Simulated assay, not measured.
Amino acid sequence: MNPAEAHILKQPEPYRSIYLHLQVLIEHTLPEANLLYKWRLPCYYIDKRPICYINQSKDYVDVGFWHSAHLSKKWDSYLVTEKRKVVKSLRYKTQDDIDDSIFISILKEVEGIKQKGFYKKDDL
């Protein structure tokens, strides 16, 4: 078992169930994605490009997207910035909070922009 999987399995409920559900969605949607353990967090990469990370923080699970500057504006009502300049995230307090279709749509869009930088040139 890799360290990222061990990290997921040692989470207390309800966070472990949220992590596992997200893991299934990510690995089903992006079968080429690799689960790595970076910065003490489970992170998904395609080749050497980061796609997202999963982190339990406070009373929610945060799925952060590094390439969020390039995502369609239609996702803005779902994504949280919380004063971060680069990363935007989806947050879930329960497994029922996860809208699979929205999550999968964002993953597919992130996959399509993974070659772009973290910043948009006009954002600098």
Score class of each variant (00 low, 15 high):
V80C: 07
V80E: 09
L9F: 13
T81S: 13
I51S: 00
P31Y: 10
G117H: 10
I102D: 05
G117Y: 01
I102G: 04
S17V: 09
L124V: 07
E111Q: 14
K88W: 01
S17E: 15
Q95G: 01
E111F: 01
D97G: 03
I113S: 02
Y19D: 00
C52R: 05
I26T: 14
R84L: 09
D59E: 15
D47H: 15
Y78P: 06
I104L: 04
Y37V: 03
A33M: 11
E109T: 02
V80T: 12
W39P: 01
V24G: 04
W75T: 02
Q115L: 09
I54S: 08
W66S: 09
V63A: 05
K120I: 01
I106D: 07
I51G: 00
K74I: 12
Q56P: 06
D76W: 00
S57M: 12
K108F: 02
L124D: 08
I113N: 11
E82P: 03
Q115M: 08
K88D: 01
I46C: 13
E32A: 14
L35W: 08
K73F: 08
S72K: 12
G64Y: 01
W66G: 03
S57F: 12
Y44V: 05
K73Q: 13
W39N: 10
K85Q: 12
K85N: 12
N34V: 10
K58G: 08
S57H: 14
D62F: 05
E27T: 10
K108R: 13
H21G: 03
E27R: 05
L36I: 05
K120W: 02
L107V: 07
L30S: 05
K121R: 12
P14G: 12
K88F: 02
P50T: 00
H70G: 05
I54L: 15
Q95A: 10
H28F: 00
C52S: 15
N55I: 06
K114P: 07
L124C: 02
R91K: 13
H7T: 09
Y37L: 01
C43I: 07
S105E: 15
S105R: 09
L22D: 04
K116N: 11
Y19W: 05
A33Y: 06
I106Q: 06
K83G: 14
E82W: 00
F103W: 03
Y37D: 04
R84G: 05
V24F: 06
S77T: 10
K88L: 00
K73G: 09
D123M: 11
I106C: 07
L30R: 06
D123H: 11
V24R: 07
C52Q: 07
I18K: 02
E13W: 08
A4H: 04
L35G: 06
P50H: 00
Y53R: 02
D97V: 06
I8K: 03
A4C: 08
E32H: 08
R49Q: 15
I104Y: 03
D62T: 10
R91V: 04
I106L: 13
S72V: 02
L25T: 10
V87H: 06
Y60F: 13
D96M: 03
E13C: 09
D97S: 08
L90F: 11
G112A: 09
A6E: 15
F118L: 14
L20C: 09
K38V: 14
Y53Q: 02
L25F: 11
D99I: 11
I102C: 05
K116M: 08
T81V: 03
L9K: 14
W66H: 09
G64C: 07
K74A: 07
E5P: 02
F65I: 09
A6H: 10
H21W: 03
D122T: 08
L35C: 11
K73V: 12
Y37G: 02
